[in-house]
Design a protein around this nucleic acid. Structure first.
Length: 378
DNA sequence: TTAGGGGTATCC
DNA sequence: GGATACCCCTAA
């Protein structure tokens, strides 16, 4: 099936850029429900990705190796599973992925499995998950509030109209007055199903098919961490549907999940730098003129005694906008930037950013472009 | 999406 | 005041 899937992918899908391959692998690798066979198929079909650039990918590969070592039964008391697990953890590169309490495992296989379970649970979210969160999850309100017409058209294609209505409803904006997308161009279906919805349905159907394959344990222990991602193992304990894992920790990340409580306002309350503010957004510099309607009413006066109401200029204090503090480039960031340029070429800032997400987490591609420009001036 | 020009804010 | 991070804009 995997061969068929990968063959199909190679024949029907355009080749993925390195950055997109990274996104896919980083998400899939950290999903325990995805069997090794599928993961291996992806590895074969996608451009090579170094696991060293992502803590999540690095750790997921190591956990898959541990899962392989711990698969099976230890009922005979031979200690074989423990020996395999120790072999895996003997690799410094793998041991470095885990806290000491896991690396210095004792003789209790059950306890080790619990620790491994906990490590799976604590994997950081993937770049795809973070992006989904930003578009339709906890960060959706901020994203949509700051999206202009064109941006909202793109967002609508991703999340579907139902989700869009929910988000705009929470924003207090009338969805019916939202920027209209060119339906004729985008939605040949008349049933209200759009690309986003279809994609979600396709995913769910696909995941449903995969569900039955999750228990095919593989015996190969990974010779992990060297070169692009190598052998890993099947998921041993199905825990969550993959669809929910895709929005792990972000319950509102899909259209059917956005109906929860309003997203916590952990994001900036002001327009995100670099995006065009919505026309509905209040400008910080806005001034409000209010009629001073205090006192008696003109309606009670004879017409010739009525006066134009006085008004006073009332400055509404602008919302506190924390000035973006200057972030000095670290030596690691500079070196990684140079390395990224050497590897991906100058100008491929997006690829470089995605390839080193932990390094450039707080840097935009424009920042990177500017920094490299500055570096070249010296 | 990126390059490049140029302005502004901030740090030293 | 210089260096530079950040931001905005336009063009491709």
């Amino acid at each position: 099936m995997v061969a068929r899937a990968t063959q199909q992918a190679s024949t029907t899908m355009p080749p993925l850029a390195a950055a997109d391959a990274f996104r896919v692998l980083e998400f899939v690798a950290g999903n325990r429900r995805v069997p090794h066979s599928l993961f291996a198929g992806l590895l074969a079909a996608l451009p090579p990705v170094s696991p060293h650039t992502s803590p999540r990918l690095r750790k997921a590969v190591a956990l898959r190796a541990l899962d392989a070592a711990l698969s099976g039964s230890d009922a005979d008391g031979s200690g074989e599973l423990l020996r395999k697990a120790r072999d895996v953890l003997a690799d410094p590169a793998i041991a470095a992925c885990f806290p000491e309490h896991l690396a210095a495992v004792g003789d209790d296989v059950a306890a080790l499995r619990r620790l491994v379970d906990a490590e799976w649970e604590s994997l950081p979210p993937s770049a795809l998950e973070l992006e989904a969160d930003r578009i339709a999850g906890a960060g959706a309100l901020d994203t949509w509030a700051n999206a202009d017409h064109d941006k909202r058209k793109k967002l609508r294609r991703l999340v579907g109209e139902a989700t869009e209505r929910e988000i705009l409803g929470k924003l207090g904006q009338d969805p019916s007055k939202a920027p209209q997308v060119d339906e004729a161009a985008n939605a040949p279906s008349t049933s209200g199903t759009n690309e986003g919805d279809r994609a979600q349905q396709d995913d769910e159907a696909h995941l449903g098919r995969e569900k039955g394959e999750a228990n095919h344990a593989q015996e190969d222990c990974a010779r992990h961490q060297q070169e692009p991602v190598e052998r890993t193992t099947d998921a041993r304990v199905p825990e969550k549907p993959v669809a929910s894992a895709a929005v792990k920790g972000k319950e509102q990340a899909t259209s059917s999940h956005v109906t929860g409580q309003a997203a916590p306002d952990h994001n900036k309350s002001h327009p995100v730098a670099g995006s065009k503010p919505s026309l509905m957004e209040r400008k910080p510099s806005a001034i409000v003129y209010q009629w001073d309607d205090s006192g008696d009413s003109d309606s009670e006066r004879p017409p010739h005694q009525r006066r134009l109401p006085t008004y006073e200029r009332k400055m509404r204090p602008p919302p506190a906008i924390p000035h973006k503090t200057r972030k000095k480039w670290t030596e690691i960031q500079e070196r990684t930037l140079i390395e990224g340029v050497a590897k991906y070429g100058r100008g491929n800032w997006k690829d470089i950013k995605i390839a080193y997400p932990d390094v450039f987490q707080d840097r935009s591609t424009v920042d990177m472009k500017d920094k490299f420009r500055n570096l070249g001036r010296h």
